[in-house]
Write a protein that binds this DNA or RNA. Structure first.
Lengths: 344, 344
DNA sequence: AAGGGGCCAGACAACGTTGTCAAATCGTAG
DNA sequence: CTACGATTTGACAACGTTGTCTGGCCCCTT
């Protein structure tokens, strides 16, 4: 297994020069640079991660911190991040943070304090709900760790934040229902510690207002982004005397719950009610009828975030630049939306 | 940040002695051992991963290699493995290997050859379909990497293999259907490169035979463990003139497909047909009706595999022991099974 | 009582890389 | 032709840990 010394001997230079070339540092003549590079290639030289991180106090690792919720969302982000990491010679570590009784930021710190002490990653990728908490990002940034925040509309305390325009996407979905003639449209909220909940709700509410539809607070039900709350909300809505003709669930899992609630009461979408979800999770295709929803480019979330992250510590000119990257979403029209039953 | 030297000074011993204590090496008096341990604790000492791996040529990393299929299964294994790794001072790396045209073992080698050259993990956790391929495990073992194989009934070329008794679980599910009075029971196979497919099929076939039910090859449909093939298989089965009254899908995603196929044709489980799945994935609770299935202790797969893996290189007495760990599964009875329609 | 073997503790080097600093080289101007 | 500054290169130490080796101690045997 070749070391820098081997490369240096072959190229007829000192190890330090090899180091400079490998790390793209300045102050090396082009001729030497080429010689070293070919020598390295011929020997199949790969830098030793442990040696360089021991000496340089950089870990060459990116840490992705997952919430306990398993799912396509996180998995796709992971896949995207991984690819970029591997191409760039970084390692991707994953953690799952599950139990967070009490303050999320405090729990986070407690959980990662020791971990970050030694195996300090160069960068951290945060997804909701961690991405939503300013305190977490600030803490990491203060530790001199680069942060990428996914799905949050802020560029504070991070190198990059990647997201879609949730507000507009929610408007599009709601418009879809309004255009089909729905007037009583319910909304099932997600977890309140994620800004997506409010963004989506605002999109929903704004379209109702523009359409001149009277906002009815009884039609807004609390939820937590999981199937059971969607089911419960659906049952509650459908048992109302003046039940809604359409339901906007803040994500697909809850929308699936609404569909099952309908089945339980003998109501079938899109005949008896319409429903839309959000995320285009796996489940969206597996319900009957299949869900109309919004697809987020989750894989791109992972790649874009990681690319910016790596760039930030490779350039490392100390200038802290924050970028916000708003990616395109896509409306996915399936079979869960129709006209309201009365107009049939 | 405390180093070994700090601990040594505080405890009044040499660094080497500290090293011995930290690594649980012999030849240290108990009195000293205690003194060093309390000193380390007081200073909050954590060994430097890079320094120790640079010197000892061990990476203190465990590598989990995922298949492209996202899902609860892999995610739970990851969660289990992660917990054990963190407790033991190891890092968990993840990779996703997606494109594997042609021979799986060859593709695997190509993909990880360079990676393993430098950042060689101490151990690798393989899940299906990689766990099914002997060549992969053999190759890794030859590179002096400890291997854990999950979901495969073999102890070749690995430190530990963790699984449930798929055959027996499939028997239980099939018995359930037979006991309810079903005689025409279809089976939807999974991907043929995973041994689970055949195991589950064998369980199914053996119960039919024991019950004296004539085996009908037309009722066995190919699949690939994914929803679309389940849907297609369901449609094909339900359009038969003498359609089956029950369907055993080799996993839950395909079972969900069968349910949707039923809906499309106006057939509702468990009234018009019965269906069972396998895995107890998230989807199993989200279908209507909810799926009767088998739960694998997937989290335990991860923890058990990782524990054995770590033990193997901590003891490291060169003796290559292989253990097979057969964990308990659990029958999950939900709403998708009833008596055949004729007996109603 | 002397010698030998087993156990324990420490001194020292080494792992492969990067940071620091000094030396060498080059170009340019006086 | 010399002097000076800017640029390029290299020698050396250092990062924190573990492997090797040596020496001391104790206990047992002869």
């Amino acid at each position: 297994m070749a070391t820098m010394l081997d490369v240096a001997k072959l190229a007829g230079v000192s190890v330090k020069t090899v180091s400079r070339v490998i790390n793209n540092e300045p102050h090396v003549q082009d001729a030497l640079r080429v010689r070293v590079k070919t020598a390295a290639k011929n020997l199949g030289y790969v830098p030793s991660a442990s040696a360089r991180s021991l000496r340089s106090r950089r870990s060459y690792q990116v840490h992705l911190i997952n919430h306990a919720t398993t799912g396509t969302y996180i998995h796709c982000i992971q896949a995207g991040a991984l690819q970029v990491c591997q191409d760039g010679g970084y390692q991707l570590l994953v953690s799952v943070m599950s139990d967070h009784r009490g303050d999320l930021a405090e729990a986070f710190k407690r959980r990662f304090e020791r971990q970050l002490e030694r195996a300090k990653p160069d960068g951290v990728i945060l997804v909701p709900p961690f991405a939503d908490v300013d305190g977490i990002s600030r803490w990491l940034t203060n530790q001199d760790i680069a942060v990428a925040r996914i799905g949050v509309n802020t560029i504070d305390n991070c190198v990059v934040s990647v997201l879609i325009d949730e507000f507009k996407a929610a408007q599009d979905l709601t418009s879809l229902l309004v255009e089909r003639g729905h007037k009583r449209i319910a909304f099932i909220r997600g977890s309140e510690d994620q800004s997506a909940t409010e963004e989506r709700f605002r999109g929903y509410a704004s379209v109702l207002e523009d359409a001149g539809i009277q906002f009815d607070p009884d039609l807004v039900i609390e939820g937590d982004f999981h199937f059971p709350t969607g089911l419960a909300a659906g049952l509650r809505l459908f048992e109302m005397t003046d039940r809604p003709t359409a339901v906007f669930a803040a994500n697909d899992d809850m929308a699936a719950g609404v569909i099952v609630a309908g089945h339980k009461l003998g109501l079938v979408a899109p005949r008896d009610f319409s429903v839309v979800g959000f995320d285009d999770a796996d489940i969206a295709e597996m319900t009957w009828p299949a869900l109309t929803t919004v697809r987020q480019p989750v894989l791109d979330f992972g790649t874009v975030a990681t690319l910016d992250l790596i760039r930030s510590f490779e350039e490392g000119d100390g200038s802290r630049v924050s970028t916000r990257r708003v990616l395109d979403y896509e409306l996915v029209l399936r079979d869960s939306v129709g006209p309201p039953p009365s107009t049939r």
